[in-house]
Every structure is written in structure tokens, then in C-alpha cells.
């Protein structure tokens, strides 16, 4: 049986094709202005990688911020439900998922079956999301990739007090003027983001194992900061950015079978 999941993210659309429970293909396309068009393109790319035609897909489930605008879908599922299903498909021992995307961070507590027990979402604040790290990288005039790696070169804790991404940028500028080394600033930024995320996730309770998914999981500086803040190891699955789309594809399979 072939099913597909489409994650209509704020910055990127991701698609996963699932064939008999295994990932057959995946694709990622910038969301852009016309998200419906981008989603069609993304799905076509994923289908091509899988060696199938879009018409062969039995059921398509969408998720993500724009899940209702995904084209030709059969059903949809929330980001929370998709992340839980996706991680449960990949790592059965995970009981807490931290999902950090471009604009939102989520903490999800789940059961052995992948059922969500509790969740918390940050809202109205970019200080705990990927967009914040991007803005800070721009302020330091480094690429996002460099920014994450730079952070690992520092062992110094530099406090950042601002609770707001905009004011935090001013704080970064002050640190630059104070000749604070770039790697220390990078670490301070990642510590600040992880501290907000951890504070939110603690609301639902943190049970081991803990996994990090979403686009920000590709940032090694953030992964390091998160592990230190949680005082425990954080697992990052392969293709962590596709976990939501995978979860949606798993749900699609369940819905075909039910």
C-alpha cells in the first residue's frame, strides 16, 4: 500500500511517500507564496524519487500550519499528532518529542503507542523558534550552518536576558560592540532559545527518551544547548525535518486500513 504525508510548514513543504510501512521517497520545497502549487511540486518530486506516480498514492494526509490548503488530500492531522506518529514510527522508546520549526516550538508527551498525552506550543513569540536563530545569524553576518557550528567552539556562558527576539537582536549588537567573540554570542543565542523551549516542555513533563525533530534539529549548536539545558541526551532521528510528513503518511496508512 502506498500513502503520502505532506507537511505544509511555514518555510518549507515536506512530503514523504510510505510504501508498505517503509519510506520510499521524500522531497522538500520552499513554501513560497503559492503553497498549493509548491505542495503539488513537492509531492511530485517525492513520488518521482519513489519511482511511483502520484496517482498510485492511495491516501494523502496533510499536516503543518497550512494543512488545510494542501491540494488533493484525503485527510489531515495536526502538527502535534503528526510529530508523535512520525517519531513513534522511527523510535519506539521516545516519550517526549521536541519539535522546533521556523516559527513554532512544541513539546509533546506521548504513550508507547504514539498517542499524545499532553502538549504545549509556544505562540506569539519567535524567541523559541528557528526564525530567531536565523535572525541572530544574520546579525553576526554568518550563515545559519556556520552559526550552529560556531556555537560548539565556545565553552563560555554568556547570559542573554531579552525575552523577545527583537530585543535579543539589540542585545547581540551590544555584545558585538563589546567585542564578545562570535562563538560565545552564538552559544548565548542557542542557550537562550533552548531555555525557552525547555521551560515550555517542562510544562508537560519530560519523560525519557527525548527526541528533537523539525528543521532546527539540523543546528548542532541548538542540539548541544538543548542537551545541556535538559541535562540528558537528546536523540535526533535521521531526516528529522521530515518527521511530521512521515507521521502524516503513517496516519494515512492507518486511515486506509481502518
Amino acid at each position: 500500500m502506498i500513502t503520502a504525508g505532506i507537511d505544509m510548514g511555514a518555510k518549507y513543504i515536506k512530503a514523504v511517500i510510505l510504501k508498505d510501512g517503509e519510506i520510499a521517497g521524500k522531497a522538500k520545497v520552499a513554501t513560497g507564496f503559492d503553497s498549493t502549487e509548491s505542495a503539488s511540486e513537492c509531492l511530485a518530486q517525492a513520488a518521482k524519487e519513489s519511482g511511483i506516480g502520484v496517482a498510485d498514492i492511495k491516501h494523502i494526509t496533510s499536516t503543518g500550519a497550512g494543512r488545510k490548503s494542501a491540494p488533493n488530500i484525503n485527510s489531515d492531522i495536526t502538527d502535534v499528532g503528526a510529530a508523535a506518529k512520525g517519531i513513534n514510527h522511527l523510535m519506539k522508546n521516545v516519550r517526549t518529542v521536541i519539535d522546533v520549526g521556523a516559527e513554532e516550538g512544541r513539546g509533546i508527551k506521548l504513550e508507547e503507542t504514539g498517542k499524545v498525552v499532553d502538549f504545549a506550543v509556544n505562540e506569539k513569540c519567535a524567541a523559541g523558534a528557528g526564525a530567531f536563530a536565523e535572525a541572530m545569524a544574520r546579525a553576526l553576518e554568518v550563515s545559519l550552518e556556520e552559526f550552529g557550528k560556531l556555537s560548539l567552539q565556545s565553552d563560555k556562558t554568556t547570559p542573554m536576558n531579552a525575552q523577545c527576539a527583537v530585543f535579543a537582536e539589540s542585545e547581540v549588537v551590544s555584545l558585538v560592540h563589546a567585542k564578545t567573540p562570535k562563538q560565545d554570542i552564538a552559544r548565548a543565542v542557542h542557550d537562550a532559545i533552548s531555555s525557552r523551549i525547555v521551560s515550555m516542555v517542562r510544562r508537560v513533563g519530560i519523560n525519557k527518551d527525548v527526541a528533537l525533530v523539525g528543521g532546527v534539529s539540523y543546528n548542532p549548536g541548538f542540539v548541544d544547548a538543548l542537551s545541556r539545558a535538559l541535562e540528558m541526551e537528546v536523540s535526533v532521528p535521521k531526516d528529522a525535518e521530515f518527521v511530521g510528513a512521515l507521521g502524516a503518511a503513517v496516519v494515512a496508512s492507518e486511515r486506509v486500513q481502518s
Partner: peptide, 16 residues
Amino acid sequence: FDEKRVMVRIDSFMET
């Protein structure tokens, strides 16, 4: 009040 986000959150809660 962010209407869209609240509705999405309700969707998640209903799922749970």
C-alpha cells in the same frame, strides 16, 4: 487573540 492558532490548538486537543 490569535484565532487561527487557537483553532489549530483545539484541533490538536480534540485529537488527543
